[in-house]
């Protein structure tokens, strides 16, 4: 068997077992989506009932809710490896570290996309945002944003898994790194909802794609440091 096919087999195995387990227990998809929706709702309280103000803040709030709920996704998927010492066993398999990392990133992706699928309509309803023709651009933004978040979040969830104060450390490390992702995704969302008057959506999506590629490459190259004890 060539190395590429065995790497693909590892990626599918790692992502597949996470999907299978989480779809069976349904803890993660339901819990994260519910948390994201509640977050959006509470933001409404924080900003007050002014419809115009809410609509203007909507893109930023949507992405904050996605990122907060997304942190639950990557922590939970890491927790599966930590619970019964499975992560240690994972490190002992003769499989490439990069493939294991890509498997965990792939595992997180559909859960993050599901969050987007729940939170985007919730934003439209709660904050009186009209999506309409902006939908394709918004979907592209959510796909690229979710991938970049999965790439960095999976890495840092793994890195902090066996550290003291990991609950504090994960957001502290993760949020500054994904700052450009947040910025680009929010700007793309704002522009798309406004009908892209300055044709800037494509530029922001390009920046998101560049972030995704750089982070997934660095993550795959250095994931050995996460599994190493």
């Amino acid at each position: 068997m060539t190395e590429v096919t065995s790497d693909v087999r590892v990626i599918i195995a790692v992502a597949g077992k996470d999907w299978r387990g989480e779809l069976r227990s349904r803890q993660l998809p339901i819990g994260a989506a519910f948390f994201g929706a509640v977050t959006l709702f509470v933001f409404g309280f924080a900003l007050g009932p002014d419809r115009a103000a809410l609509a203007q803040a909507a893109p930023g709030l949507l992405w904050l809710a996605l990122i907060l709920a997304g942190m639950l996704v990557v922590s939970r998927l890491q927790q599966l490896e930590t619970d019964d010492g499975a992560g240690e066993q994972l490190a002992l398999y003769p499989a490439s570290r990069g493939a294991i990392y890509l498997g965990k990133v792939t595992a997180a992706l559909p859960f993050l996309l599901l969050l987007g699928a729940v939170l985007l309509p919730a934003t439209a309803v709660l904050y009186s945002v009209v999506i309409g023709p902006a939908l394709p651009a918004l979907v592209a933004t959510i796909v690229l944003g979710s991938f970049g978040f999965a790439a960095v979040g999976t890495f840092y969830a793994g890195l902090t898994a066996r550290m003291r104060a990991r609950e504090i450390l994960l957001p502290l490390l993760l949020l500054p790194v994904i700052a450009p992702l947040l910025l680009a995704a929010v700007r793309a969302t704002v522009a798309a909802l406004a009908g892209d008057p300055f044709s800037e959506v494509a530029s922001w999506l390009g920046l998101l794609a560049a972030f995704d590629l750089v982070m997934v490459a660095v993550g795959a190259a250095t994931y050995g440091t996460v599994l190493e004890e």
Partner: peptide, 26 residues
């Protein structure tokens, strides 16, 4: 562990700068 964090930070910084510059410019 620290080495991994330093490398990620270093590749992130140009993207941060780029995004903030665009934010202002666009």
């Amino acid at each position: 562990r620290a080495a991994a964090v330093a490398i990620i930070a270093a590749v992130d910084i140009p993207i941060v700068h780029f995004s903030v510059t665009w934010w202002r410019g666009l």
